[in-house]
């Protein structure tokens, strides 16, 4: 079991779920409030399932690490409360995630392969949602410039050997990726916010 890779995947899903849940109440249409909320719940559910492969207590992994210990890709950390960039991220992430999850479905470890297959079934709906939005916004400057801007971040979601597949799927040239392992200030702020209630009581307190 490639624990570092799985931890990166789980952290991606966790943080993207956190970011997507921010649209609740303020999306461009009520239907999208509901859709983003559903997607966020799925992503966080996936993070939890992967954490449970890696540790006894998923909450401890999700909340009790220092910011620098998270392995999420910079793509998912970006604070993007505008719809063009949010949808561009969803579209790019879903394709990258599909490449990664499909590979994990062939993993030697049956638990990993089984979980990947389960996650893949739910992600199919996220891909349909992203594809629908890509079609609707494809001709808007907001979406096009956002895809250009986020492309090097999207490459950083995958390990180098899977990047060619991503570039081929999206018909783009590979560029220098924004790699995992560093975090921006927005992540520090998010981490502070997502742990503030939990940190307010001694470790082990029930919530």
């Amino acid at each position: 079991m490639n624990e570092l890779l799985l931890l990166g995947l789980a952290d991606d899903e966790l943080i993207l779920g956190w970011r997507d849940s921010e649209w609740t109440g303020i999306a461009p249409m009520l239907e999208e409030d509901v859709a983003f909320s559903s997607i966020a719940q799925n992503e966080i559910g996936h993070a939890r399932a992967v954490y449970e492969l890696l540790a006894d207590d998923a909450d401890v992994l999700a909340f009790d690490r220092k910011p620098e210990e998270y392995r999420c890709a910079p793509l998912v950390e970006l604070h993007l409360l505008d719809w063009g960039r949010t949808i561009a991220r969803r579209c790019l992430y879903e394709v990258a995630d599909e490449i990664r999850i499909t590979a994990l479905m062939e993993d030697d470890d049956a638990r990993v392969a089984g979980l990947a297959a389960k996650i893949n079934r739910e992600e199919a709906y996220h891909r349909m949602h992203a594809e629908m939005w890509r079609e609707r916004l494809a001709d808007t400057p907001q979406f096009r410039s956002a895809v250009d801007e986020l492309w090097r971040y999207a490459l950083g979601v995958l390990p180098p050997k899977q990047r060619e597949a991503l570039a081929a799927r999206l018909g783009r040239e590979q560029v220098d990726a924004v790699e995992r392992g560093t975090h921006d200030d927005a992540f520090a702020a998010l981490h502070d916010e997502m742990t503030m209630v939990r940190r307010s009581a001694p470790a082990g307190a029930q919530w």
Partner: peptide, 9 residues
């Protein structure tokens, strides 16, 4: 805003 601050998964 508390969706972001929920203390457990």
């Amino acid at each position: 805003e508390w969706i972001l601050r929920a203390p457990t998964l």
